[in-house]
Simulated scan of single mutants.
Amino acid sequence: MSDTGEKKPLWQRLAWLALIWSASVLALAAVAGLLRLFMSAAGLGTP
């Protein structure tokens, strides 16, 4: 990472933060959905 002494604008840093956060939430939701799918396929669903 090259540090030339200049920072990116605040809105751009916040946009990256929001993008990374939403990607992690979506990934977690996808993993949870897959686990629910496998558990229901194995007969371990909620009654």
Rank of each mutant, 00 (worst) to 15 (best):
1 M>D: 11
1 M>G: 15
1 M>I: 05
2 S>P: 15
3 D>Q: 14
3 D>V: 06
4 T>F: 09
4 T>V: 07
6 E>P: 10
7 K>C: 11
8 K>H: 13
8 K>D: 11
8 K>P: 13
8 K>I: 04
10 L>E: 11
11 W>T: 04
11 W>G: 06
12 Q>E: 12
12 Q>R: 15
13 R>W: 03
15 A>M: 09
19 L>P: 02
19 L>G: 15
20 I>S: 05
20 I>D: 00
20 I>G: 04
22 S>P: 01
22 S>T: 08
23 A>H: 04
23 A>Q: 08
24 S>V: 09
25 V>M: 12
25 V>L: 14
25 V>C: 13
25 V>R: 10
26 L>W: 06
26 L>R: 03
26 L>K: 03
26 L>C: 13
26 L>Y: 07
27 A>I: 04
27 A>Q: 07
28 L>M: 12
28 L>F: 14
28 L>E: 05
28 L>P: 05
29 A>T: 10
29 A>F: 04
30 A>M: 05
31 V>M: 11
33 G>T: 05
33 G>P: 02
33 G>N: 03
34 L>N: 14
35 L>A: 13
35 L>H: 06
36 R>K: 10
36 R>M: 11
36 R>Q: 11
36 R>P: 01
38 F>E: 12
38 F>I: 05
39 M>P: 01
40 S>C: 07
40 S>M: 07
41 A>V: 01
42 A>C: 02
43 G>D: 00
43 G>H: 00
43 G>Y: 00
44 L>I: 04
44 L>V: 01
44 L>N: 03
44 L>T: 00
45 G>Y: 01
46 T>L: 15
47 P>A: 01
47 P>W: 00
